[in-house]
Design a protein around this nucleic acid. Structure first.
Lengths: 251, 251
DNA sequence: CGCTGAATTGATGTGCGTCAAAGTATGTGG
DNA sequence: CCACATACTTTGACGCACATCAATTCAGCG
């Protein structure tokens, strides 16, 4: 739904998309970008807390997150909620919903967000005429699955401290790849309740463990920014296996 | 189901693929099937417990599971392991590995399996020339993600009894869609340790809760087959939201 | 018949959830 | 600028679901 203050900018120029400047988005030809531009329906603004896609929605469009953070989640009938993964600028939103014709999950804006809107009905057309983009879409889908795999492993196998460390590291790396990190710190808009829902922990226990890790000197948080004070230790605490996949689509 | 005694058939005819008879696989034209046939590299047989893809592998091919069960998993450095999702006949194996050029997970045969092997290097070619198949691949990827979402929600939010019920129901429905259910029962090859690893629970606790649910009359298990005695109650216990996505690719 | 791996059961401890309340922002209106 | 409300964070006390340790039973199999 279009938020109160949203101004669609009909001609928002994809060629000048700031995301293209980021290391993670280098490799698209101007011609491809022009095609994307031609498919782009709208440029939408939503306030923090708004639903980008609500659970069960059948006509959701396909979005890319232009700026801000969002998250995918699933709720149980009794209100418990699991945050499945977190979306950063440049991520696709609604691919599952577009392909499966129904959202089994919701997507909510975590901060104020800007979205580029693409018509879900033309995805099939895109697959017919734009193999490179189709491949990239499939690639982005797989990359998202990879992140969820990681979260599932965390929630299923790691204890509270390990989970927190793993999630922090993962977000740190993704933010870094987008050029959002400076001085080892980046904006961190998650409320503790959301953080807890992402970790599969209670709010209280999340808070206590979080405090413990801060006291141990792993990281600190101040006015909405998180600073990684001891990346090595944090990585070790997270029991990481290996690298997250690099942001480089197309063989 | 094709049993363990089956041998690789070099010219195994996709046109006669038994999976095509299943309700879930109706809608492919003979022409498409012939193309698939032409891409098919091999028909391979692996014993239960074998690795189809090992963690970190960079040159994994793309497979379809022709018969038998398998599972994707991730292991932590200290040996803990999370089973991410379970693969049934007709499922793709190795899509992530093919697209991301490296497997962040392993895939292991749960029973003896037969695999159709497709060259990972030609996936890009497929995207260039076969939009319908590409779309279906993306669709299958999204469907798998959907299953993982479900598991993550289970592991993060449901208690032991709910998790077990949810996993049983999910497998039951998938088996049913493949025509593998008769008399409310289907083959259930998971060992309790594997079941526990899929649920993110300890083996002991899984066993005890499992026993409780059997005593409550939800289901029973005998010589490798699981029978759903009380589907309604099981669904309610699982706290399901809604249906799993239907097996019908292409808009 | 004995070997081996899996399922089952009991005893005991603890990580995490739940309940409850205090502390700290941030905002709104007088 | 202060009073007050609302939302979020932090801390403590207590209980339970689940983990861990340790046996015992059971099933397949040479």
């Amino acid at each position: 739904m279009i938020g109160p203050g949203s101004q669609p900018r009909p001609g928002a120029p994809c060629l000048a998309c700031p995301l293209r400047l980021r290391p993670a988005f280098k490799d698209k030809s101007d011609e491809e970008v022009r095609f994307i531009q031609s498919m782009k329906l709208d440029h939408r603004w939503l306030p923090a807390g708004a639903d980008i896609i609500h659970p069960g929605q059948e006509d959701a469009e396909l979005y890319t997150l232009f700026s801000g953070w969002a998250f995918r989640y699933k709720s149980l009938p009794d209100g418990r909620r699991q945050i499945l993964n977190i979306l950063l600028p440049g991520d696709l939103a609604g691919l599952q919903a577009a392909l499966l014709n129904a959202a089994q999950h919701g997507i909510e804006a975590l901060t104020d967000v800007e979205l580029c809107v693409f018509p879900r009905k033309r995805v099939w057309e895109l697959f017919q005429h734009r193999p490179a983009l189709s491949y990239e879409i499939a690639w982005l889908g797989s990359r998202e699955e990879c992140l969820i795999d990681e979260n599932l492993t965390s929630v299923g196998q790691r204890n509270a401290g390990e989970r927190i460390a793993a999630l922090v590291i993962s977000l740190y790396r993704r933010a870094e790849a987008l050029g959002l990190v400076s001085e080892n710190s980046f904006e961190f808009p998650l409320k503790q309740q959301q953080f807890a829902d992402a970790l599969g922990l209670s709010l209280v226990h999340t808070n206590k463990t979080w405090a413990k890790l801060r006291r141990a000197g792993l990281f600190s948080i101040a006015n909405g920014r998180l600073t990684l004070l001891n990346p090595r230790l944090t990585e070790r605490m997270a029991l990481l296996f290996d690298e997250a996949p690099v942001h480089r689509p197309l063989i």
